[in-house]
Design a protein around this nucleic acid. Sequence first.
DNA 1: GGGTTGACATACGCGTCGTATGTCCCGAAT
DNA 2: ATTCGGGACATACGACGCGTATGTCAACCC
Lengths: 198, 198
Amino acid sequence: MATGLRARMMEETRAKLIRAARKAFAEKGYAAASMDDLTAEAGLTRGALYHNFGDKKGLLRAVVDEIDAEMAEGARAARDRAKTLWLGLIEEGVSYIEMALEPEIQRIVLLDGPAVLGDPSRWPGQNACLRTTMATIQALIEEGTVRPVDVEAAARLINGAALNAALWVAASDNPPAVLAKAIEAFRLLASGLLREPG
Amino acid sequence: MATGLRARMMEETRAKLIRAARKAFAEKGYAAASMDDLTAEAGLTRGALYHNFGDKKGLLRAVVDEIDAEMAEGARAARDRAKTLWLGLIEEGVSYIEMALEPEIQRIVLLDGPAVLGDPSRWPGQNACLRTTMATIQALIEEGTVRPVDVEAAARLINGAALNAALWVAASDNPPAVLAKAIEAFRLLASGLLREPG
DNA sequence: GGGTTGACATACGCGTCGTATGTCCCGAAT
DNA sequence: ATTCGGGACATACGACGCGTATGTCAACCC
């Protein structure tokens, strides 16, 4: 590949900035995070930031894309561990609920992300989470397990329910107990998609 | 009630500020809305703002509470127009989806609200929307139509799915068509709560 | 090895929030 | 009726943060 020295340095600084941004955005929220402090923490200045990401929103976009990819990867792993495809869909949802308990994901992806970047389904990072769920549902329909339904609509609703549940769980006084209730309700709701109710 | 002149003036300025805030927050978003412009539009200055609402977040809280109450009222009306209680729950959800198509609700309640004020279930304005759905589900369980399930969990998931669907619909290229798909998928999902699948 | 390009630092202007201070008028007490 | 206190709102001020414009130095190309 013969990646020149310039390019390697560039990737390094981008990585450092994204790392610092994940920390700052998660701890203080997007609005309260100072670009001066953030870049200083990364051992750089705002010059590097505006050169690499254009503006503050650009940095958030990069951070969200990275986390989104990690979430999708986790969900896919959860799905593949399940015995059947249908249980895979359930585990995928449960996985989202559990992942969203992490403050970093809460704050950045679920709260600030949509507010600053707009509707998640329009994110250019292609929204890996949504695509993963859509693929699973598509397969379930072809398999005959799930009733024919618009794949994107179902995926959106399922993910929306899961992520919203996670927000609720994380803000509750007793997360473990509430998590159990949320998962139970999620199973019930999801079963509405089944051709033969289980 | 013998409300004094002072109190009446106060209510008037609060109302004027909230009116201007709804407009500004909806059009420019919370972050980009200038308190100077906003208060000027209301024929006042920032002094009135900080006296009545404490800070910018306080104003947003007041706005969100007002809109939340209006949404809950609309949902209740939709529910009461339905033939059966179960159809009432569906209509309530559909009502949320349709209401959230208005940019004002989108921007203020669904995007900026959670980002600035945190998890909606913790909003002091008691989250009228959620309570309305909870009441409906509770009645459905007592009626025997819906399987026993944690009421708050079910309501959170149902509402989350609906509102998330609305975000998707509003951001789509062809809202009417997408709206139909969303409603269809919503019906399916909700039917998962039914004791006897229909 | 000199010129060019690009990555990043530094310096500045502009706008905004929150507060501290000032002003004026309603309402009550005498 | 006059005075006085307090509350509602206006004005003035300080601090901070974003984005841009300008500067600098090292890496690539010939």
